[in-house]
Design a binder for these strands. Structure first.
Length: 187
DNA sequence: CGTCTTTGACCGGCGC
DNA sequence: GCGCCGGTCAAAGACG
């Protein structure tokens, strides 16, 4: 299998959406449509922090990210920083946060960027470990957290934090493929 | 040898 | 002030 999903959405936050390569079953990702969770009460099954983030994200379309694409693919947009609840201590500027909930055997999905792992923690209310990654791009401070869903370990929660200041190393190579698969994001 | 992962320590925010 | 918790740092080891 040699699928690679590009993202035609010009929104920088949405551009952080993973491009899945051969390590990821495309059918698994598309299957999210069947399990997409729009209900705040079920968000509450996640950790307290996560649930508040998701509730805020899913209930607020004014962020500009709450389009149909994100909803159908079970992508949520976190306004944690903007709401002033918590802010990255080294960043005074607002940084968009995007959470994906995907079903995958793999915790690490190839999103086209190069990541360096810098931490791993067990968090409260989740028996699964949370992994912390930074983008390896020069001067790029984008981070992501990857953890398995507390309630269903077959799902992976990936949270992107920030905007890349560079293109994906794979963008030019896969540019054509991105166009080919652009409709996937409109499903 | 350069890059990446691992992992314990450390730090800051928050609630009590 | 203290303890808990999430996030980050950085030294050491693994790996190609």
């Amino acid at each position: 299998m040699d699928y690679f999903l590009g993202n035609p959405n010009p929104n920088p936050a949405v551009n952080m959406a993973p491009f899945f390569s051969s390590d990821f079953e495309i059918s698994d990702f598309l299957a999210l449509d069947d399990v997409v969770d729009h209900h705040p009460e079920s968000w509450s099954q996640s950790t307290e922090t996560e649930s508040s983030e998701k509730a805020a994200a899913s209930s607020d379309a004014s962020h500009g990210f709450g389009d149909a694409t994100s909803t159908n693919n079970n992508i949520t947009f976190d306004r944690k920083c903007e709401s002033g609840v918590k802010r990255n201590k080294v960043e005074d500027q607002v940084s968009p946060r995007v959470t994906f909930r995907t079903r995958s055997q793999l915790e690490i999905m190839d999103d086209g960027y190069k990541w360096r792992k810098y931490g791993k923690k067990s968090v409260k209310n989740n028996p699964n470990l949370r992994n912390y990654y930074k983008c390896s791009g020069e001067g790029c401070s984008v981070k992501k957290r990857v953890e398995r869903d507390r309630d269903d370990s077959s799902y992976v929660l990936t949270t992107y934090d920030g905007i890349h200041n560079h293109e994906s190393p794979c963008t030019s190579y896969y540019g054509q493929m991105s166009l080919v698969h652009s409709n996937v994001w409109a499903v």
